[in-house]
Nucleic acid binder design. Structure first.
Lengths: 242, 242
DNA sequence: GTCTATAATTGGATAGAC
DNA sequence: GTCTATCCAATTATAGAC
């Protein structure tokens, strides 16, 4: 028997059902109607939030819609009124995520001092690891699976963005303001070292006994990651002011 | 309704079934019996290999035993003869993994030159990322889920090992042979930067167009990660011989 | 929009012949 | 040890009343 493909969802069953177009339609009605629209949107985002929390830990298949519904405090069938099916919900969560995801990298420009820019970026990413660890985890889960749903976006949006930022880095290197480094690898190192504290939080906790929620540990982490990436560890220099 | 726990396996249904003690019993029989024992063990490891490949991409719940069986070229019920149930299979895979996992860190001792030791460790981990990316991914998946199955091992074995290696690092720092760095954070940085190339391989591929299987890219990666961690990127120093 | 059934399906696990 | 035929539980999704 030839080896089969492991994922079987997302391909077969498209129902389409005029999928819950609840928002996006808002005519000129009374203020009561506006209130109702907001309620609907609140509910949608409550569901999305609950879904993010669960999907990011247990994945698409490890999570049941019942669980999402319970956590969002709605009934299962009610949830399925807002999202035609489980996958649509999953994709919605993922889509919301992506923009949040790309944001920090955007504010990274050639005019900045390289050292300051990178230090700030590390801090910003660690703030996300602390405050939105589930976003980081879900992103990681998708990557591990081969990003079936983000592959296109990766190949386009993210690639363009990273290519652009790579040029910034390359220029810094050319100006001698940064040690010679292949921009892509630097970007990977920045991502890896910062997201690690979200994705491997259990391990960090098991080994250090602390989490980023502990302010002292958070600052220690920021400082150490900055020092490692900016100054390296080989020199006996003190790293200078960070 | 109170928020439920998302994982429902691994707790409820223990069957125990005198679980497939096929190996480990080998009396004095003819050479034919020995051959048969080997066949059994080959089959077991074929199943374990297939399982690793699938679990590491799609997780426990995203993989069906049918798929594992198909990839290992056995029937589902035959598979369930060797492993009492899906979870036992999963745990077996994970257990095999852990030792492989800890190995590189062990060969890391105070006598070595810090720079050389760390450079070698980075290379060793990148070799694993290249040659056993599924091991890396499965480990990552477990971590993201909160390591329900490894938590104990993490708290014991890994912790002891890391604590010990931390002392090595701390000594290097005390001797001025390493810049001041909190050992745990250095270890995290080493893990993160190297495993990233396995866990986020799709992203690496999408952004660079290459993989670690490309020898030139592999060497470029080793060199860049070593440079970043050892020398940092801020200085305009050329990084010296690595 | 929300609820209470209930249909429909997947997939893990067992029984029992060979 | 291996197979075929089932069983049965868990879940997704729908129907239709309110």
């Amino acid at each position: 028997m030839p080896a089969p493909i492991a994922r079987k969802t997302l391909a077969g069953k498209k129902k389409d059902k005029a999928l819950a177009a609840a928002p996006a339609r808002r005519a000129a009605r009374g203020p009561a109607a506006g209130r109702r629209v907001r309620q609907v949107e609140d509910k949608r985002s409550a569901i999305l939030g609950a879904a993010l929390g669960l999907f990011s830990r247990y994945g698409l298949h490890g999570t049941t819609v019942d669980q999402v519904a319970a956590r969002a405090a709605v009934s299962k069938s009610n949830l399925l009124y807002y999202f035609a099916n489980k996958e649509e919900l999953y994709v919605s969560v993922l889509r919301d995520l992506l923009e949040v995801w790309l944001a920090p990298l955007r504010s990274f420009s050639a005019e900045q001092d390289p050292r300051a820019a990178i230090a700030a970026y590390i801090r910003a990413k660690l703030v996300i690891s602390r405050d939105r660890p589930d976003a980081s985890r879900l992103f990681c889960l998708e990557m591990i699976q081969g990003a079936p749903l983000l592959r296109d976006e990766l190949a386009r949006e993210l690639r363009d963005l990273v290519d652009h930022k790579s040029e910034v880095i390359r220029a810094w290197v050319a100006d001698g303001r940064l040690a010679p480094v292949e921009p892509h690898h630097l970007v990977f190192a920045l991502w890896a070292t910062t997201q690690h504290y979200a994705d491997f939080a259990v391990q960090v906790q098991a080994l250090t006994g602390r989490t980023l929620d502990d302010p002292a540990f958070f600052e220690q982490t920021v400082e150490n990651v900055q020092r490692i990436v900016l100054d390296g560890i080989a020199a006996q220099a003190d790293g200078g002011p960070v």
